[in-house]
């Protein structure tokens, strides 16, 4: 299938902790297609961050293969990974992770700068992106002068500004109150409707419910993979269930 964006083939990630070997990801296979809105759901320690680091090209699997947009990331060197991140991925972090000493405009310019875009063109693209998330009148503000919800919108603008193939959101509502959290989820849903592929990582069932498809992890294993309206999606797992294998 030529519109597969993310493909895990028996991906495992092992960590040596003293004498014990921790399987942070244990033989996970999955496919995510262009235009999907997927939530990776699991309790703390289930392996969500590990998967997100692999999808985000920040880390490589211990075994198995990970393909992003048709390319095998395991074969890339650090430079190629950096370039690939810049080109393919838009990160949205729980803690916003804005650069505190730069204005929000400059913050949004950073990915464009690494993409080699300069001068007026860069400023204009960053400003337009901030306008589209409703912050066009605050370009010169420092992140610390904005509310949490506004800061998260800046980080969404920054994630989108290079037109990435995938938007990767790690607990994007974790630091926000309920109402602003909902607004951010609404924004993600709207982005997905506009054709963006969104991968949302969360431990919270009600947040995951915003997605169209749920992948549940437990102890590094995939225990559910199916549409959000599947009754098993949020069921406490008595035993590993999988609705995977069907084509999406």
């Amino acid at each position: 299938m030529d519109n597969v964006l993310i493909e895990f083939r028996h991906v495992s990630k092992l960590y040596q902790m003293g004498d014990t070997l921790v399987k942070a990801a244990d033989d996970i296979s999955l496919e995510i297609y262009k235009g999907e809105f997927v939530a990776i759901l699991g309790k703390s320690g289930s392996g969500k961050s590990t998967c997100m680091n692999i999808i985000g090209c920040l880390d490589v699997p211990t075994s198995g293969e990970f393909l992003l947009d048709g390319r095998n990331v395991g074969h890339m060197n650090k430079n190629e990974l950096a370039e690939f991140r810049n080109e393919k991925l838009g990160f949205i972090f729980q803690q916003y992770n804005l650069l505190p000493k730069m204005s929000i405009l400059e913050n949004v310019e950073v990915p464009l700068m690494y993409a080699g875009i300069t001068g007026r063109d860069r400023r204009q693209r960053a400003a337009e992106m901030l306008e589209s998330v409703g912050l066009g009148n605050k370009l010169k503000n420092l992140p610390s002068q904005l509310s949490g919800g506004q800061q998260q919108r800046v980080s969404i603008a920054r994630a989108l500004v290079c037109s990435p193939a995938i938007i990767l959101a790690d607990e994007p509502t974790g630091a926000l109150d309920g109402k602003t959290g909902t607004e951010v989820l609404e924004l993600l849903r709207k982005l997905n409707e506009d054709g963006n592929t969104v991968v949302l990582i969360t431990h919270d069932n009600s947040i995951a419910a915003a997605a169209k498809r749920i992948i549940r992890l437990s102890d590094g294993k995939k225990i559910f993979d199916g549409p959000v309206d599947d009754p098993r999606a949020f069921a406490t797992p008595a035993m590993p269930v999988s609705a995977g294998g069907e084509a999406y």
């Binding site: 985000g56 920040l58 650090k78 430079n79 950096a82 370039e83 991140r85 810049n86 080109e87 990160f91 992770n97 650069l99 950073v110 990915p111 690494y114 993409a115 920054r158 290079c162």
Partner: peptide
């Protein structure tokens, strides 16, 4: 350190 991490996530190469 965190800033460096953010920059790397956003696509900064080691060289930069």
């Amino acid at each position: 350190t965190r800033e460096i991490g953010i920059r790397k996530a956003l696509g900064a190469k080691e060289r930069y």
